[in-house]
């Protein structure tokens, strides 16, 4: 198996355990190192703890035990304000983009700038927002539309532009292709790769159950099962593994095809 380069980790998850009711552990001793400058895809069946793990990494949930380090800093040790500041390192694209529905596309992208780059002039902010929207592949004619007037793909592009507004070094995608048709799925995958390449030194973390996407875009893939990491390696490692559950997941994934994923 290929050794995952963990010398320079952007995110380090160290023996994380999480229970909501005190009895059942959703995360049961997760160890994961997300290498800097690479695309890592976390895959797994539904209910294996992918989203819960992501919320821990983003500091939205506290673990029952264990440590999470972002750029070497333990986020559990941080105060609420430090944690909030730490979150500005992340650019997050949510499953359904989570755009503010009372704001236009442009206002959505301007929002993080207005909150965290108050020193910039209005014109400069608008220039940055336009640039991010164009980079995400959204045409100018859509800038003043409301999210409800956009298609699913355009919403994802707008969500991505908003995630990139503060030039984050850690890009996180939560189920970015769920519910999209094969053409849009491929478009979003390409967008993830092109965005990753464009930002120098950026680390990308994608949470998905789309096996095709994982193998197409991921430098590394980690598979979760029952709150544990079953396998963490390159796509090649996954194809060569003897672990029965991983083999079954791959078989089912390829059998179903990308359209049904």
């Amino acid at each position: 198996m290929t050794e995952v380069n963990t010398k320079d980790c952007a995110i380090e998850v160290d023996n994380i355990r999480k229970t909501f009711d005190g009895t059942e552990f959703v995360l049961n001793g997760i160890n994961l190192k997300i290498p800097r400058g690479k695309i890592t895809v976390i895959i797994g069946f539904s209910g294996t703890g992918k989203s819960v793990l992501l919320k821990h990494i983003l500091g939205l949930l506290n673990p029952t035990s264990g440590i999470i380090r972002i750029d070497g800093e333990d986020i559990n040790e941080m105060t609420e304000e430090e944690r909030a500041l730490n979150r500005t390192k992340f650019g997050v694209l949510f499953q359904y983009a989570a755009l503010f529905d009372d704001m236009t596309v442009m206002e959505n992208v301007l929002f993080p700038l207005r909150e965290h780059r108050r020193e910039l002039s209005k014109k400069r902010m608008e220039a940055i927002a336009s640039e991010k929207l164009s980079q995400s592949g959204l045409e100018k004619k859509h800038f003043h539309k409301l999210p409800s007037e956009l298609s699913g793909g355009m919403r994802k592009r707008c969500g991505l532009a908003r995630a990139l507004a503060l030039d984050p070094q850690l890009l996180v995608y939560d189920e970015p292709t769920t519910g999209l048709d094969p053409v849009l799925t491929e478009m979003v995958d390409d967008l993830i790769v092109s965005t990753h390449k464009r930002i120098e030194g950026a680390s990308t973390l994608v949470v998905s159950h789309d096996l095709y996407a994982a193998f197409r875009i991921g430098d590394y893939v980690a598979m979760l099962d029952s709150g544990r990491v079953l396998l963490h390696g390159t796509p090649k490692d996954f194809l060569e593994t003897d672990i029965e559950l991983v083999k079954r997941f791959i078989q089912k994934g390829f059998h179903k095809g990308p359209a049904e994923n």
Partner: peptide
Amino acid sequence: VTEQIDALEVMAVR
């Protein structure tokens, strides 16, 4: 339910 509140939180807005 549409994760807009989560989006605010990850953008470091209370």
